[in-house]
Simulated scan of single mutants.
Amino acid sequence: MKKISVVTPLFNEQANVAELCRRIAEVMQSIPYDYEHLCIDNCSTDDTVPLLRQITASDPHVKVIVNARNFGYIRSSYHALLQADGDAVVLIASDLQDPPEMILEFVQKWEEGFKAVMAVKPVSEESKIMFRLRRLYYRIVTRISEVPLVQNATGSGLFDRAVLDVLRSIQDPYPYFRGLVCEVGFPIATVPFKQPRRVRGVSSQNFYSLYDMAMLGITKHSKVPLRLMTIAGFLLAFVSLIIAFGYLVAKLLFWNAFVLGTAPILIGIFFFGALQMMFLGLLGEYIGAIQTQVRNLPHVIEAERINF
């Protein structure tokens, strides 16, 4: 019998963990596959881990990895994926915004022959501003990426063992997982759904973590920003030369009447200063990505394993 591993990363999800495990168990018991449910806890500060201990005591399918500290969603979830030993691995969010019942559709696509299946949310009940910002980001990244990315992907999905074997060989210490799956090259099936609002608990994703994930998607899969810096440098140098020549002509023609004033100087200084800071920031993002890759630290340090 084939085996499916279900991976759920958790952080302070005491309000959702019991229902999460129950719904996943109901789904997995309705299909003719053996399964394991691998929960990775990112050093929660609430009762998530004690609740997981109670669940593992009565359900041998549930396994738990407890991290020594909070290593972030990206590293923690990726580490859990690589620890799974099923013929296919399902990654599903623990906040129940990506309903566990979608696993049935993931498995159906897998049985049709797809080695990668991803959940996409063309419609969402989250904040309209955030949803539009996400859509805009995905459109931009898709346009500048060296490989076509799946737009509006939530990160949840099913991935065949062949995909995981490739990811293990890459050994990326800080991956943009959604982009990395596209880099592998296997055809990707999508499962669209309407994402509901979070009912219980508070999201661990803040502005910094969302920004980190967004920049990771750009720096890992596109050199376009670096090229734009060079092109913008040449264009600005040319424009500056034209403006300087225009001012010279104006001064020669209207020597006594033409006065430059301080406004253009101040505006020019602040404009070029802001542009330089933006370009330096983008360059720093790429350098930071290189540093992370070179250090090659482990994804997480495990404090404990339960029910393995």
Rank of each mutant, 00 (worst) to 15 (best):
T190V: 12
L253M: 14
M213N: 14
K121S: 03
A18M: 12
A289L: 09
I188V: 15
Y286N: 08
R168E: 03
R178I: 11
D95L: 00
L228M: 11
K194E: 13
E304Q: 11
D46M: 02
P192E: 03
L235I: 07
A237L: 10
A263P: 03
L136C: 11
V199G: 05
L149R: 11
V7Y: 06
A119L: 02
M277Q: 02
F270L: 15
R139Q: 14
L52N: 00
A68D: 15
P192M: 04
E36G: 05
V147S: 13
F193L: 01
S77R: 12
G201F: 01
V141S: 02
L81V: 07
I144W: 12
K109N: 03
F177T: 15
G185S: 09
A80S: 00
A257H: 10
E26D: 13
E36A: 05
N307Y: 03
L210Q: 07
Q293Y: 09
S209D: 04
Y208W: 05
L149S: 09
F177P: 04
V49L: 07
L241W: 09
A189R: 12
V62K: 07
F308Y: 09
L260W: 08
P9N: 01
F254Y: 14
D160Q: 10
T48M: 02
P196H: 10
H299P: 02
H299D: 11
Y286L: 05
T48A: 05
C39E: 02
L51F: 03
R53T: 08
P225G: 01
R197H: 08
V300I: 15
H37A: 02
E304M: 05
A153V: 01
F272S: 12
N206M: 00
V6C: 04
P175L: 10
L252C: 08
M118H: 00
A237P: 02
Q97M: 12
D212G: 00
D98G: 04
T48D: 03
T190E: 15
W110M: 12
E285N: 12
I144T: 12
N70I: 02
F234Q: 14
N42T: 07
E101I: 09
R22M: 09
K121C: 01
V224T: 14
S222P: 04
C43Q: 15
A257L: 06
Q276W: 07
T154S: 14
P192V: 07
A15K: 14
E146Q: 13
N70F: 04
K220L: 06
R305A: 08
V62M: 07
M1D: 10
P298K: 11
I31P: 00
L236I: 02
V17Q: 13
A214G: 10
K63Y: 00
E111G: 12
